[in-house]
Design a protein around this nucleic acid. Sequence first.
DNA 1: CAAGTTTTTGACTAGATGGTCAATAACGTA
DNA 2: TACGTTATTGACCATCTAGTCAAAAACTTG
Lengths: 197, 197
Amino acid sequence: MARPRKFVESDVVSSASEVFAVHGLAAATLDDLVRATGLGKQSLYNAFGGKRELFLRALSEDREEAARAVSEALGHDDASALEQIRGHMLRMAIEFSSSDRRVSLTTRALVESTGEDDPLSAATKAGIEQLAGVYAQCLEHARADGDLPEDANVQSLAVYFVAVTRGMELLGRAGVGRGVLTAVALDALRVLHKPQS
Amino acid sequence: MARPRKFVESDVVSSASEVFAVHGLAAATLDDLVRATGLGKQSLYNAFGGKRELFLRALSEDREEAARAVSEALGHDDASALEQIRGHMLRMAIEFSSSDRRVSLTTRALVESTGEDDPLSAATKAGIEQLAGVYAQCLEHARADGDLPEDANVQSLAVYFVAVTRGMELLGRAGVGRGVLTAVALDALRVLHKPQS
DNA sequence: CAAGTTTTTGACTAGATGGTCAATAACGTA
DNA sequence: TACGTTATTGACCATCTAGTCAAAAACTTG
């Protein structure tokens, strides 16, 4: 009944994500997006609405995927919750010490949002809460297993892990190497050690 | 012998810092800078050279000041090194939960630097090392006082604290409140607890 | 007070940017 | 095969950008 699209939306979004992750929202030009996605300007506008909207779309997809990945990594049952989170942190150390110029869209949005009422702000806040939720769930398991100190506050610990990983991302970006980042991750995990009695 | 300047360089730099902290490097326009500093465009160019150069200048001043502030806070002798760092982290929690839109220039540079060879990259790396150095010194004291676990690695712990504070900054920006941020800071400090024997 | 030097001022420019328009192409359906 | 609908294309535009130029202003010193 009408001319069909030549592109798959999710492919376009993921190409755009790449551009945004490397350049950021402000510094990415429409031309970069056009080149990366292969679409014409107008097609981009028809399908998404504009640069910001496209970013928002990429952000939410990115955030969804990140949460799913973490959740999956933390949800396997072949190891204790404590071991899961340990493995996760070490994986993050490696991922963040890769030398590409990518910065997660959540971090980009955080830094580039212009105000409390900016849609970016809401999206990032939601992203952080989502991520913290995943951590909290895992930590809850660990607590149930008796692997956490009695006085541990699962909620704030979850946020703590979000903070540490964000910090590690920044450090990785700054050129801190894998060895140091791994040591940092291990340090961060000490928080979970039960005081030996 | 020649027409004197109407401005004080350090004032201009600090006005510019404010602009950059709020908008970022890419998003800050020359016009913003002109308005904030009160100088004409050409005067800015005469004195500093351009937007990037001005940012670089602001960055190094900001970094110097941050390091000095932390160093000072951690250097007082009326409390143990461990108590100092505890106080410092709690102060950070409060600072980062303030609702202004500022982001430290170091973080901005980190995120906006375009490549390994970008001068911004070198500056941020130096900044992080400087900060880590300050933490390391304090932790060394704590170790000497016997307040740290035997197996504590002062170097990586120092970097760990840089990571945590950067992460807290991002979280604060995302709207995480003072209470939660304080809890995160306290969690972060658990790393320093000696296993009770 | 005049010369010399540097700052300031404000008009100017070349290029890039996000975004739009109108014509055309491609498909399903009747 | 003709029609209606939607996608694509590429030219177009107003605006904003960082950065420049040349003339005027302000100060010190001789």
